[in-house]
Amino acid sequence: MSATSHAHDEAGQAPLVGSLGVDSRKLGLWAFIGSETLFFTALITTHLIFYARTKADLAAKGMLEHMDPKLYLGIDLTTILAAILLASSLTMVLALAATKSKEWPKFRFWLLATIVLGSAFVLGQVYEFTHLYHEGLKLAPQYVYEGETVKSLFGVTFFVMTGFHGLHVTLGVVWLIAVYFKVRRFAASPENPMDVELVGLYWHFVDLVWVAIFTLVYLI
């Protein structure tokens, strides 16, 4: 290990500085976020293409009302989910600020708030999925709806796209819980600010993806 990897900065962090002069873990996470951006863009693009191609056909058969979540569920639920995730981004950044100023009670409060809000988002999405599935939207390219065969990739692309986002939120909640207990157990660890910063970056990215999905899928 190099001497710089042991050096602690003013905030008490122990950065693992690589040859580029930045923390290797943070660089790795930003590279991961860059690749995830391409991944979610592929899912969103696929959904938009298949939605546009099947919309007219489904509307002619009178099936669009049950196929399109924004027509069927309205945007009330997703607006609440967007507000929840946005609020969780705020609580996350407040938790990070509390970590840097070593205000541990505040940190615990804001991180727990983030965990609760993240869990609420996941529960909201489970409710939405259950509702849509029981109303006929299926994770299949062909299925029978009210006696008529429906051939559409809309359900597949919708569930895969929003499902992967939900999976990311779920993993984020697990990561947040792990960081909460790690910081609580090892309060004096110089790694704590970076641990919180890394999970914060991931969490904000998950919020960012929802900003795109909310606009492109639910509002347009």
């Binding site: 981004s89 996350m92 950044v93 914060g200 970056l201 904000h204 990215f205 919020d207 960012l208 900003v211």
Partner: peptide, 8 residues
């Protein structure tokens, strides 16, 4: 942009 610039 707000999320990326200020929160991240």
């Amino acid at each position: 942009a707000g999320v990326v610039m200020y929160f991240m």
